[in-house]
């Protein structure tokens, strides 16, 4: 068995990326909430994102799809500077929120993260009560004037996340005692409670059953009225159901981006077509 023979011409990732050509489709929208321009991301010497231009429109759900390891999480984490927690990670290029450079000198990553919330792939509730989990953000940012206010925020957030009825009798019990799907919705409630402007979701349904998934998709649809949302997903159906625009990544390069309908019915790039029809590789 010789793997080299199957790939006779040894290409570096840089060469493959160069051969992919420019991004196909409309990276820009009329009313952008966040923008990326020429974004490169490096993990130490290894480049993970290559010159991405992409907008997230106001009140829009953008889904990010692509094979594993293509840099979806990496780009998502750039959008609220969660990459700052990885010492070897370096971001260049320009990213903006409402026209302000989010990597600029005067930008405070802590404030940024309050405005750009994140739901992680694996549910990660704090080892605190359900109530405290949701109240965490509002407490930090002083969003409530008194206890009644805080109660109100907690209940509203849990309602919006579609989990209130399941937990209303046990708000004082640990959030870690919930099922995986409930935990994920708790984490969404926790994020909503900070009233962010943008919500980033990294495969929020990967650990959930179809019913819980449907609930979260419904929630995303409702949230769109007030927030901008970027969601990473491995499910084509989910991308098609919840998003207005879709971006397809390959090896750290944004290959194609456009209206979800167009991407799924009439992809223009060969790689996109292969991927969404399941002929990848």
């Amino acid at each position: 068995m010789n793997l080299d023979q199957e790939q006779p011409q040894e290409q570096t990732i840089e060469e493959i990326v160069a051969s992919l050509g420019d991004t196909v489709g409309e990276a820009r929208v009329d009313n952008p909430k966040m923008t990326c321009t020429g974004v490169d991301v490096f993990y130490a010497d290894k480049q993970a994102i290559f010159g991405v231009d992409l907008d997230i429109g106001a009140n829009e759900v953008l889904s990010m799809i692509g094979p594993s390891g293509c840099g979806k999480s990496t780009l998502l984490r750039c959008l609220n500077r969660m990459n700052d927690t990885i010492p070897i990670c370096k971001v260049t290029g320009q990213l903006t929120l409402d026209g302000e450079d989010i990597y600029g000198k005067q930008t405070d990553p802590v404030l940024l993260r309050a405005r750009v919330g994140m739901v992680f792939q694996k549910p990660n509730p704090f080892p605190k009560s359900i109530y405290e989990n949701v109240a965490y953000g509002p407490r930090l940012h002083g969003l409530s004037r008194n206890k009644a206010d805080l109660d109100d925020i907690v209940v509203t957030s849990l309602r919006k996340a579609g989990i209130y009825n399941e937990v209303k009798d046990r708000l004082d019990q640990p959030g870690t005692g919930l099922s995986g799907g409930q935990q994920q919705r708790l984490c969404i409630a926790r994020t909503i409670a900070c009233s962010p402007e943008v919500i980033l979701m990294d495969e929020p349904c990967s650990a959930l059953d179809p019913i819980a998934t449907a609930k979260i998709e419904e929630l995303i649809d409702e949230l769109r009225e007030n927030y901008s949302i970027a969601i990473v997903t491995h499910s084509m159906q989910q991308a098609a159901r919840v998003s207005q625009r879709t971006a397809y990544f390959h090896l750290g390069k944004l290959v194609e981006v456009g209206d979800t309908d167009t991407i799924f019915t009439n992809p223009r790039h060969e790689l996109t077509e292969n991927y969404i029809t399941g002929r990848f590789g």
């Binding site: 969660m82 927690t85 802590v110 993260r113 509730p125 704090f126 965490y136 930090l140 940012h141």
Partner: peptide
């Protein structure tokens, strides 16, 4: 777990918080 820290930082908490 780092996920615990990420969750808190992602909500806009500072490192010491």
């Amino acid at each position: 777990p780092q996920a615990m820290r990420d969750g808190s930082l992602g909500l806009g908490a500072t490192k010491s918080e």
